[in-house]
Nucleic acid binder design. Sequence first.
DNA 1: TTGTATGCGTTATCAC
DNA 2: GTGATAACGCATACAA
Lengths: 349, 349
Amino acid sequence: MSTRRATISDVAREAGVSPSTASVVFSGKTPVSDATRRRVRDAAAALGYTGPDPRAASLRRGRSGIVGVVFEEHLRTAFLDPVKTLMMDGLADAVAPLGAGLLLLRDHEPAGSGPSLTTAPLDAAVLVGCSGLLRESLDAVRARGIPVVVIEGDAGHDVPRIGLDNREAQRHAASHLRTLGHRDVAIVALPARAGWERGWLGDGTAITIDVTRERLAGALDVFPDAPAYAAAGSFIDEGLLAGREIFAGPARRPTAVMAQSDLLAAGVIRAAEEAGLRVPEDVSVTGFDGIVVDGLAPYELTTLVQPAADKGRAAGEAVAAMLDGGVAASINFTCTFHEGNTTAPAPAG
Amino acid sequence: MSTRRATISDVAREAGVSPSTASVVFSGKTPVSDATRRRVRDAAAALGYTGPDPRAASLRRGRSGIVGVVFEEHLRTAFLDPVKTLMMDGLADAVAPLGAGLLLLRDHEPAGSGPSLTTAPLDAAVLVGCSGLLRESLDAVRARGIPVVVIEGDAGHDVPRIGLDNREAQRHAASHLRTLGHRDVAIVALPARAGWERGWLGDGTAITIDVTRERLAGALDVFPDAPAYAAAGSFIDEGLLAGREIFAGPARRPTAVMAQSDLLAAGVIRAAEEAGLRVPEDVSVTGFDGIVVDGLAPYELTTLVQPAADKGRAAGEAVAAMLDGGVAASINFTCTFHEGNTTAPAPAG
DNA sequence: TTGTATGCGTTATCAC
DNA sequence: GTGATAACGCATACAA
């Protein structure tokens, strides 16, 4: 068709006004007479001009309207996790008023391919559980003055953090079990580190994932000797495998299992059923997260309800505050203990 | 600290070279002597310059490295669907070589808040099942020369489409059931339209969601009189509710249920168990999608396996082709029939 | 309410 | 291998 796309100057010329007037017609930042507006609009239509080029606008304004969300893992694993999904929703809601959208970024992206923290036109960045993120690129981003917020992870002490009282919450659930008379408790943990394959956690096992370590600590605060089996991920099927392992030998079968996520707990319940154990009469099961586990009815987990969407929203608000020139403080969210029908007094003897 | 962020010109001046040389040091597009490179790098470090500003670079190059993904729904519902998650992964893989990332966009975003197809600095856009997307903004995007691809949806005849043989595939499953002797079949459908609340589909019910309509047609091709109950979403719990409805009265209990998604099928199986029916002895159940339903073991669904990740990848490749100046053709993917252990010959009598 | 002037920070192109 | 120059397309301060 045309050799070159129309610009706002072309439109202005066609409409017989100055470029700035035309600009104002599109941005609406200044009153414009109806007549001019009409003329500009018509000229735009005639030239097939569809509005300011976002690239140029963002250079000029110094804002791109894009917030990067950096995940540690493959997107698949990120979005399969209901907690992260909820969080993303909260985040999306919170950045929408800024007129911003979310750009999906992967940690460890093979350099050169794909956008990275340093090459994407970001106004701000939210890191989700990124422990492995290269210090270097993080520093680069912050040096550029781009606000950074971390959810469940550690990125250095001067980066605002959205946290959760994992240890205290898990301790609460453990106490609840102890009050019910349980003494023999097993733990089904989240992965100990990236790439972890399922297995028992020994004394020497290094646990690099914060959430896992903190929740484990909370359980051990109350049951120091509880054995812990770490799954390969937060899935029902993983919980099932862990549960089978735990209920395997008749020797020293626990009367309660504390799972570090609701999905794992759901799997543990399945395993218990398989083993002919009734929940909660023969074995109590607790979860963590407080999500709705699709298909788990009629069980209603005893669990720690975490404000997942709120965490995302808080991250978004922190970003907004920093973008506004303010500072954002770290926030620590609190889980709510919810007693469902999967825990009961320890069976006698 | 400093009143202004350092630019590449500052770095060049500090290093005693021209801006273009400094630029080349960072882009690597042209050979540079080691000595110069060193000087520039050192100058950058001294000034705290962390690399070219992506906003300016994208204006200059005419590329932002961002591909927009437009969802019809709230992100939550998008990511809760395993098929979409897989698709996103395929898409992410396919655009990574372009150096591009994915920007999450919502259809129907309340104008003004949030980024939209027209205001975000996109190189290309992928629409996911967007039937409702405003014709207008779509046209605007295309007018701007931004490539658009549609996955499972219709955006007009000259927009490349990534499709699926929904009708044929579902018909295949239906034929399989008929071959097994089933005559009395019920259908559990996906929602008929956005905002749909669960309920039976009558003759007059308008079905605006393509996938639902196509899969339904495939089933009706073989069982024209099969009653269909449309769920409010693709969830196990929704399948459970639908299943209860279907197995409710003892009157005319179907010998087979065709669900339009694996998650719905899983719920139907639960409902059957609740009603004291054995699967597949008393009632056969088929799904659609071929995802792994977490927690469904030991059942293995008879289902249509769709190449979800491939669809995403194909969309990404189509985008890449168009960005390269070429044209992309529509592609129709084919489902594979997979016989699991949830279908069996119709019970006698 | 409209116009003028300027610069946002880069990179492609070409000549040297 | 390096440097000068010219856009890229827009939005804002300020003057009129």
